[in-house]
Simulated scan of single mutants.
Amino acid sequence: MFLQVEKISKRYNQNNDHWILQDINFEQKHHQKIALSGASGAGKTTLLKIIAGWEQPDAGNVYFKGNKVKGPDEQLLPGHKGIAFLSQHFELWNNYTIAEILDYNNQLEKQAAETLFAICRIEHLLHRKTNEVSGGERQRVALARLLIMQPQLIILDEPFSNLDFDHKQILKTVLAEIAQNQELNFIMASHDPMDTLPWVDTIVILENGHIIQQGSPHEIYYHPVNTYSAGLFGDFNIIPASMAALLALQSTNAQSTDNFILRPHQIELHPHSNGLITGTVKEVQFLGSYDMIVVHTSQAGDLKVMEQHTTLQPGNQVTVTLKNQPIISF
């Protein structure tokens, strides 16, 4: 196994029983991309630091290619040479050119380094000083600085958090090309579902220091274990069990008390009010490529419905039906 995280626990401090992480277990296979997802304070950054060898766990171990990853209490210099960690609070030395920073730890031949710099879109920045590059450019330089040390696992802590749209798209392209060309493993923490759903193989969800769910992006999106998991990946509607029969919803575990979760794109609206479930359009929000319609129903309260280029207006009476989509019950 490429990476094993076994029974990792971490307290806020040694004088109390308030846990940042408790009994964390998961594995990573070769060439697998994993995302950690969770609300602020869920323990994502602490877990990433422990995996990278930058923070000492209070219990449990991390094994990288069969060998234990030592924490800072177990070795003089923290970190692991096969694991690169890009913090969301990274720094670049002042008064140095980008080339000088990259040359310091470069373990690549000249041609390989030039190829890497081209992939990272920084070849035109090499002769600039660190105070002459933008935030997005600094992020790519910091990533290149890690990659020239030839790690096998890249750990990214909220890599897109402070980037504008253009620089975020460039960095996403860079990471995709690195994953394809370098055949590296990645673990990334992000709060934005659009950063994780299209890119990773597995998502691990943390809540209050515990793993509550892990699975493929499709499984996490369509089969969340609770409303917390559902809410991390976009808007959703809760359909009470009493309303399920009206929409022909069927639970996967056949419990009559199940509530259901429907994503906005799983509901369809019809511009008339002669169906089993009817409502009134409260609001229409233009969101670029689609409209989000808020419909008030007597059976389920307000529902969010996604449509492209709707002609509905606030005050319109509508019938609510179900599209042919996977259904979530919990």
Rank of each mutant, 00 (worst) to 15 (best):
A84W: 11
K304L: 12
I24H: 02
A113N: 00
Q182N: 04
N15T: 04
H265G: 08
Q317S: 12
P326I: 05
L287T: 07
A84Q: 01
I154A: 02
F2Y: 11
Q75T: 02
P198F: 00
I211R: 02
E219Q: 10
R11S: 10
L116I: 12
M194F: 13
W199T: 12
L269R: 06
N15W: 06
L147G: 08
I24Y: 03
Q88H: 06
A84D: 00
N274T: 05
L287C: 11
H270Q: 06
L3F: 15
I205Q: 03
E307N: 08
G41R: 01
I203L: 07
N25G: 03
D157V: 04
D195C: 06
L206C: 13
V5E: 09
I238G: 10
T257S: 14
L147S: 08
G301K: 06
T97P: 11
R140V: 04
M194V: 03
G135W: 00
H191Y: 01
K304Y: 08
E132H: 09
D291M: 08
I277Y: 09
Q107V: 03
S289T: 12
K10W: 11
S9R: 00
P240F: 09
M188G: 07
Q313T: 11
K33W: 11
P57F: 11
T278I: 14
G279E: 01
L47C: 08
D192G: 04
Q308I: 15
I238Q: 12
H272Q: 05
P78M: 03
G41M: 06
V204H: 04
Q250P: 14
Q317I: 04
N185S: 15
K70R: 11
N67L: 08
S37E: 04
L92Q: 05
G60M: 03
L76E: 15
T202L: 03
H210R: 09
E307F: 13
I205N: 03
T196N: 03
T310A: 07
M188R: 00
G82E: 15
I238W: 04
H18N: 09
A245C: 14
D192M: 03
Q88I: 09
L287P: 13
I203Q: 07
P57S: 10
D201M: 04
E132P: 15
A42M: 13
S216N: 05
M243K: 10
Y228W: 06
G301S: 12
N237V: 12
A179T: 07
S87I: 09
D166F: 15
L92I: 03
Q213N: 11
T319D: 10
E114V: 07
G79D: 00
N316P: 15
P326F: 07
Q22I: 06
Q180Y: 10
W199H: 10
Q22S: 09
P314K: 02
I34E: 01
P198R: 01
L197C: 07
I239Q: 13
Q107H: 07
G279I: 02
F85E: 01
V284A: 05
E307D: 14
